[in-house]
Design a protein around this nucleic acid. Structure first.
Lengths: 408, 408
DNA sequence: GCTCATCTGGTAAGCGCTTACCGAGCGGAG
DNA sequence: CTCCGCTCGGTAAGCGCTTACCAGATGAGC
């Protein structure tokens, strides 16, 4: 911990030691003896308890803080000797600039706020499950992969991710979100984080990019091609398999993604003259527990299930398949099931899940890049960026081979 | 110099203000002229489009910035009228304090840095797999659940998570990590992020807590009871199932967790007079791809597999089971497999994975709480916190029922 | 040798907050 | 009525950086 090493320094107290920073008059340290080597001896001194500041570096190097800053930021062109002394002092002290001070001064925090909406407290499965989906909200692969993509792109620009989860039950997340916004240079919002009104207001203060939302005049949006992906899937089911009755197990009702997928499916089904079940009793929530619950309910009500259940996402499909198996319904023999997203787990289910692959990581990377250009006051090329999605035909649709089919 | 009350919108300023109709939240309803404010603050030359500052609030409310700050932070006891005016101004302007300024002044960033080590670029499966484990490093449930736990605890204290991934190939992550440290109040490091030497140096500047590492004089460590968990598992395999040949498929060689599990297993196996296979050809890396590769190699070399393969973690077990199935080896009939962690996916494998459950979320929460006390200069009660782990006996060990067995 | 352009380092003014300190106002006690 | 003590608002000093601006030094051109 804080070792009150040598004299000279006040170890515990304010880093302002000796009040040097305030008045410009260098009280002790500046060029003093000019001892070339004396510096390294002094170096150890700053090793008090807390991190060294730029003043410590300047003192040890025998230069002004401006020079230190310039060397560190590559401004102008410091003389080699100056540069050396500074760099030596920096590594001696293990100095790194304070993020807050740097941010305040440079007006750039090099931080992106990312907000995910999900239950904050691990909720047990809401139904009769045997805890199969406990901790589900804690381990969703989709949002985490999205974040990884954001992070990857951010890292290239020297940015970091500031992550915050808002509770699904939080009906006024505005405060929490604005606060996060002020800790970062811009915000990336996952699905359904904020309603259009608050979004609008927020976006007047900070750059905002939504994932799977809706672009507006002040916000950009990144999502994948739900329509094309769903059309490919639907045609495969209708045409290749010849299914005539389908069900769409939706995500949240107000999710643009779920809506778009539903519409695309509906159109294809109608065109093929087949039947699509949907409606309130088919309302899921993007979670496996939700998918399982809906399935249980359907089964319990004695309804005849459609030949194939098209789920809003993989997570839901996972729950559906689980519930079906539990009731002894064969998948895909009696009822086929499909997902959307293609999370890694989809390949490890039995049967392997037929789904539509979204380029999840790229979605995140793109969201960051768009935000980055907004942060730099560039006019983004597109306010609504669409990435391609493609059908991953595996087993749960009724195909026996696994592989990838690309349809128009 | 009179400060323009609202109208100073510099067009080029914020990305948002460009063509936005109704530009101001600020200019809308503020009856500024009302109060005798004059140019209350010198520094209030706010840009039109960007977020309002405390000076704007003070001006609108007709009070000093100190009062605004006091109302917002609940210091002292402002007169009700003052409080009202301030609060009204705040909500009118949609003000939230700038994080960097607040952090600099209050010497508290309310941010925890979290560092995970993993491949930065999604690497394809390193072996002959059909891409079954592509994106694996992007979607590990374990570290993400750990982070969720940290986040949950952090949120209670008003802290946020600043996340950074360092590449496994990065042999000098020191710089990147120190930089992150200076953006936060303390660091939580996942497994194997930093060697003891650098750790030591780092921990002199900021509070550091490691997860699954080793406690030192200046750092705290949080982990689960590897020994007890592994002993319970080993006894179940040796005693209840009567297996006589076992193999330990390890995580990274320098991972304290993997080492502890290995030792505990070894001791139990020796005591039972059974045989444990391990060594270089049994060296995994905590990933499914690694587990699969080791298994493939073992199979290819013609070695007789032990009756049960005990894996360092669930992810590895996933890969092992995958490779076994691919070669037509029945699990658990011919070879049983067990994991460690109990990630949610473990329950969805076929057969369901027998494993040792770590309280993953709690591990994260605890790590944060320990760090929090360090940030507040409290002497943590324990430098090495151990949380209980328990056997989750399911199917992959050879049991046919699923449920939970608790052994001594 | 002198002038001037060029280069480099130092000085100081913030960035937007928090808070120590000071002083005005006010009520109760003497 | 005066004095004291208390309350509460304002003033200003930083927090640790970046950078505009200035001044001294240096060398080229005459």
């Amino acid at each position: 911990m804080a070792v009150p090493v040598d004299g000279g320094q006040t170890a515990g107290g304010s880093p302002a030691d000796g009040g040097v920073p305030g008045n410009g008059i260098a009280d002790g340290g500046v060029p003093d003896g000019g001892t070339a080597d004396g510096a390294s001896a002094v170096g150890a001194s700053a090793d008090g308890g807390s991190a060294p500041t730029i003043y410590d570096v300047a003192r040890v190097a025998g230069v002004s803080i401006a020079s230190v800053s310039r060397v560190l930021n590559g401004r102008r062109n410091p003389r080699p000797e100056t540069r050396d002394r500074v760099l030596r002092a920096v590594s001696e002290l293990g100095f790194a600039p304070d993020g807050a001070a740097r941010a305040l001064s440079a007006r750039l925090k090099e931080t992106v706020g990312v907000i995910v909406r999900r239950p904050l407290v691990p909720a047990g499965a809401p139904d009769g499950d045997d805890g199969a989906f406990a901790d589900e909200a804690e381990s969703l692969q989709f949002p985490d992969m999205l974040n990884r993509g954001i992070e990857r792109a951010a890292q290239r620009r020297g940015f970091d991710l500031l992550v915050r989860t808002v509770d699904v039950d939080d009906h006024d997340p505005g405060q929490r979100i604005v606060a996060l916004a002020r800790k970062s240079d811009g915000l990336i919002l996952h699905d359904r984080v904020l309603d259009p009104h608050h979004l609008q207001r927020l976006s007047r203060q900070v750059p905002v990019v939504t994932l799977a939302g809706i672009a507006s005049e002040t916000t950009a949006n990144v999502h994948s091609d739900n329509r094309a992906g769903m059309v490919a899937l639907a045609r495969h089911l209708l045409r290749d398999h010849g299914y005539r009755t389908l069900g769409y197990l939706g995500g949240y009702g107000d999710s643009p993604d779920s809506l778009a997928r539903h519409e695309a499916l509906e159109a294809e089904v109608a065109r093929a003259g087949a039947v699509l079940h949907s409606g309130p009793q088919w309302q899921g929530n993007y979670y496996a527990a939700g998918g399982a619950a809906v399935t249980e309910r359907l089964l319990a009500s004695g309804t005849t299930l459609p030949r194939v259940i098209v789920c809003a996402n993989d997570q839901t499909a996972l729950g559906v398949m689980y519930a079906l198996r539990r009731r002894g319904v064969d998948v895909p023999g009696e009822v086929a099931v499909t997902g959307f997203d293609d999370i890694p787990m989809a390949r490890h289910l039995h049967p392997q899940l037929t789904t539509v692959r979204q380029p999840i990581g790229e979605l995140g990377e793109t969201a960051f890049e768009v935000l980055y250009s907004m942060i730099n006051h560039e006019r983004p090329a597109e306010r609504d960026v669409v990435l391609p999605a493609r059908l991953m035909c595996r087993e749960s649709c009724g195909c026996h081979i696994s592989g990838q089919v690309s349809e128009t």
